[in-house]
């Protein structure tokens, strides 16, 4: 507990890490572009006045994809060491789903 693990990287390691970080950052920008794109499509398809039965599932799917992109890229789930974070977030999502399902079906109208 008293010892913090800080080991200095060698020059090669450092350069390698830097390169990977740069690539990763470029990746993030791509992900961002995708998210903007999805948001725009969702927005446009509602504005265009298409059938709700088509649009509703579509935009929900887009929202889910966007959230996955945030979590896996912006919040680094795609890197290792996030098992527990994923476990708790997926459990939360599952409970959230059950609750919302209940509230739109058996809230007693």
């Amino acid at each position: 507990m008293s010892h913090d693990v800080t080991h200095t990287r060698t020059q090669q390691e450092y350069e390698y890490d830097r390169k990977r970080a740069n690539l990763g950052m470029r990746n993030q920008v791509t992900v961002f572009a995708l998210m903007i794109f999805l948001t725009f499509i969702a927005f446009a398809s509602v504005q265009a006045g298409m059938s709700a039965y088509l649009v509703a599932p579509l935009i929900l799917l887009f929202a889910a994809v966007q959230v996955a992109l945030q979590l896996y890229y912006f919040m680094h789930w795609s890197e290792k060491g996030h098992g527990m974070a994923q476990f708790f977030m997926y459990s939360a999502a599952f409970i959230a789903f059950t609750m919302i399902l209940a509230f739109i079906t058996i809230i007693w109208w």
Binding site: M89, A92, A93, M99, I100, I104
Partner: peptide
Amino acid sequence: WIFLGGETVLFATLFATFL
């Protein structure tokens, strides 16, 4: 992260009520 799990459920409750 664990706290965010709790927050997720918190917002789910608010969404459910809104719906």
